[in-house]
Design a protein around this nucleic acid. Structure first.
Lengths: 223, 223
DNA sequence: AAAATCTCTTTTGTATACAATGATATCGAG
DNA sequence: CTCGATATCATTGTATACAAAAGAGATTTT
C-alpha cells in the first residue's frame, strides 16, 4: 500500500485524531519506508486540506460542526448540479450503471444488521457507486475531480453509522426518485431530489453530532 | 520564492507548455535547490490537477476547449452560489471591500491601454479582489478553498488579453449589478448576475480559442 | 513562586547518494 | 531500407546524512 492511502485512511477512520501531529520518522518506520515518500504524501494531503501546516510539520485537521455544514452545502451544490446535467446528457449505459448500483444498494440494506462494520462499509461503497454513476453521466469530467477532493470528511462524521433500516429504505426511495428524474430527462427534478437527499444526510449527521456533544456534557457533569 | 509558486506560475504564464515533461534536476538547478523540495512542489501541483502523472515523472496538463468549458461551468456554479450566499450573509465591512475593489477596477479600466502587460496584470488582480470579497462574504470558508483550487486555467486561456475597453466597461457594469444585488440582499438576483458575468467570460475565451484555431489552420494551408 | 532565558534534544527541511526503471540509440536481421 | 531486439544512458524513486530550527526542560532571576 502506498503512503498517501495509508495516512489518508488512518485520518478518515479516526485512527489519527484531529490535532495530532504527523511525525515523519515514526510513520516511515511503521510502513517500512524512508521519510522522502512520506513527506510527498503529506504534501498531497495538505493540498486536499485533510492536514494543516504548522510552523514545522503538519497536524490532522480538526472539523467543527460548522465545517461539516459548509462541506455538505458544497457537496449538495456540486452533486445537485451533476444530477441535473446527468438528466440532460445521460446515455442508456449510464442508466444501467445507476440501476445496478441501486440493486446492490437494496440488497445491502436488506442484509443490514446494526453495527456490523463490514456490511456498513459495503453499504457506504455501493451508495458511492450510485453517486459516482451520476457524476460520470454529467458530462463534466472536472466535477468528478472536485467532488472527490471536496474534503473527505472523516468517517466518524459520516451518517451511515447511525442509520436504522427505516431511514435506509427512505434513502433508497430517494435514490429511485433521482434515477427516475434522470431517466425521464427532468434536470430540475433531479437536482432538487439530490439536494433533498444530501441535505437529509447532513441533518442526520448534525443531529447526531449534537447528541454526541450532549453525551460529553453529561459526562462532564458527572465528574 | 518557493518551488511550488515558481512552477505553478511558469505553467500559468505558459512558460512551461502543455505536454512538457518537468525534469526535476534542471528545475532544481534553475532555482538553486535540491530535487527534494521540487518533488514536493510537484506532488502538490498534481493534487491540484495542473500536472499529470506519467509512468515516471509528470507532464504539464493539456487543456482542451472542452476542459475550459467544463471548468468555467464549475466556476459559474461555485461563484454563483457564493454570490447568493453573500447576499444573505454580507456585513457592512464585506460591502466596503467589494466597493473598494470595484473602484480600483474602474480606475484600472480607465488607464487601460491595449497589450500593456503590467496594466493587464493589475486588472486581473483587482478583478480577483472583487470576486474574493464576494466569496469571503458567503459564510462558507470551504468554498474559498475550492474555488482557488478549481484548476487555475493557464493564463493563455484567460479572457483579459483580448478584451477591449468597451467590453471591460460592460464587465464593470455587471460587477455593479452584482454588488447592488448583494447590498439589497437579493440572493437570486446576485446568483443570476454572477452566472451571466462568468458565462460571458467563458464565451469570450471560447470564441477566441476558435479564432486562434482558425489562424493555425490558415498557417497550415499556407505551408 | 512565577517568569524568563538559555541549553539541549528532537524533528524537520534540504542535500546528496544509490538503485531501479523507462527511454533512446545502435546494431543486426529480414 | 525498415523494423525489431538489445544494450546503454538518463532520469526517476527511495534511502540516508547533515544542518537548522522549534520545542521542552532546567536553571536562574526577579
Amino acid at each position: 500500500m502506498d503512503a498517501y492511502e495509508f495516512i489518508k485512511d488512518a485520518i478518515i477512520e479516526g485512527k489519527f485524531v484531529p490535532g495530532m501531529r504527523l511525525a515523519e520518522e515514526s510513520l516511515a518506520k511503521e510502513m517500512n519506508l524512508s521519510r522522502t515518500p512520506i513527506r510527498e504524501a503529506i504534501k498531497q494531503l495538505e493540498a486536499e486540506g485533510l492536514v494543516i501546516p504548522l510552523k514545522r510539520g503538519v497536524s490532522v485537521r480538526h472539523f467543527t460542526k460548522e465545517d461539516i455544514r459548509q462541506i455538505y452545502d458544497l457537496r449538495t451544490l456540486l452533486e445537485g448540479y451533476a444530477a441535473s446535467q446527468a438528466a440532460i446528457h445521460r446515455t442508456v449505459d449510464d442508466l444501467l450503471k445507476m440501476e445496478e448500483a441501486n440493486v446492490f444498494y437494496e440488497e445491502a440494506i436488506s442484509r443490514y444488521v446494526e453495527s456490523d462494520m463490514d456490511r456498513l462499509k459495503d453499504m457506504v461503497e455501493v451508495n458511492q457507486k450510485f453517486h459516482e454513476a451520476i457524476v460520470a453521466a454529467s458530462n463534466n469530467e472536472h466535477i468528478h475531480f472536485h467532488i472527490s477532493k471536496v474534503v473527505v470528511v472523516p468517517i466518524v462524521f459520516r451518517s451511515f453509522y447511525w442509520y436504522n433500516s427505516f431511514q435506509l429504505n427512505q434513502s433508497l426511495q430517494v435514490h429511485k426518485t433521482i434515477l427516475e428524474a434522470i431517466k425521464n430527462r427532468e434536470p430540475e427534478r433531479a437536482r432538487i431530489a439530490m439536494h433533498e437527499h444530501i441535505y437529509q444526510g447532513r441533518d442526520h449527521v448534525l443531529k447526531h453530532l449534537e447528541q454526541i456533544k450532549n453525551i460529553h456534557l453529561l459526562k462532564e457533569e458527572v465528574k
